[in-house]
Design a protein around this nucleic acid. Structure first.
Lengths: 136, 136
DNA sequence: TAATTTTGCTTGCATATTGCAAGTGCAAAT
DNA sequence: ATTTGCACTTGCAATATGCAAGCAAAATTA
């Protein structure tokens, strides 16, 4: 996925140009909910992203200002990927997808539980997680 | 995009298997906000979807229960595509994408105006449009 | 009534994207 | 000094996308 010229002025279309593929939101999910942050973390996710695709997605997400590279506190060999403000702001979208899923898919209980909490008070849930992410 | 077996039990991943591509949400946008309903309507959208891709997306959306074919009131030659309940329920996701876009993209004033209204009271906005769609 | 246009597709083919396996260079651990 | 871990890159096959042309049934026009 090269950083392509936008297809139209429609903000939905522009948004999909940024994260409208099968992998980007899963990487962002890993950053938000599973506290993953390194290349190998993402590689190990159960969906099994191919290594070259992961590299290209990370590059695109960085170019689009969704994530940022930073030094890993433990080792110079590691790179820590972190969500930018712009990336953290995608959380409400992901929450709505989860809530939609909850209506139409079955899923592991642990996730169902998280969604239940999110539904109870969306704004509170989003603010809570946003705060956590920013403090990292 | 064939109707592929799911990559994982993650509801986000499953959702992306349904609408996580560059075109599906644009078709749904057209159904929701532009009152489009026929094959040619979708073809004419400014993003310029290819005819074979449109056909494959409509088929997939139908197989996933997001849209339904119905008889067109004006003509037997025409087919009216309509959102199912499951499809209408995607509206909160699209609204959140719009709201995110509003923060990070510039866009036509008319759309900015719609988003402004959506932000004022999300629930009201969603309910209003849902009602309209169901009454069609 | 016959010819033309509209509608919703399908088909063929070139190009682009994805997926898989193997390899590379640097850092860190043994 | 050697092996392992990490973040990639490369090559190539498989799949998906984009573009142009074609096609059958219905609707319109002549």
């Amino acid at each position: 996925m090269e950083t392509s010229k936008k297809r139209s002025e429609c903000p939905l279309s522009c948004s999909l140009d940024v994260f409208g593929d099968k992998w980007s939101l899963l990487i962002i999910r890993d950053l938000i909910f599973y506290k993953k942050g390194t290349y190998n973390d993402f590689l190990k996710s159960e969906e099994g992203i191919a290594t070259n695709i992961l590299a290209s997605r990370l590059k695109a997400l960085e170019e689009n200002g969704i994530i940022e590279k930073s030094a890993h506190p433990e080792s110079k060999a590691k790179i820590l990927y972190r969500l930018s403000k712009k990336g953290i702001d995608l959380l409400p979208i992901i929450v709505e997808i989860y809530i939609w899923s909850d209506k139409y898919f079955s899923m592991p209980l642990e996730i169902k539980q998280i969604i239940k909490e999110a539904k109870k008070d969306k704004d509170k849930f989003v603010k809570q997680i946003t705060k956590e992410l920013k403090s990292q």
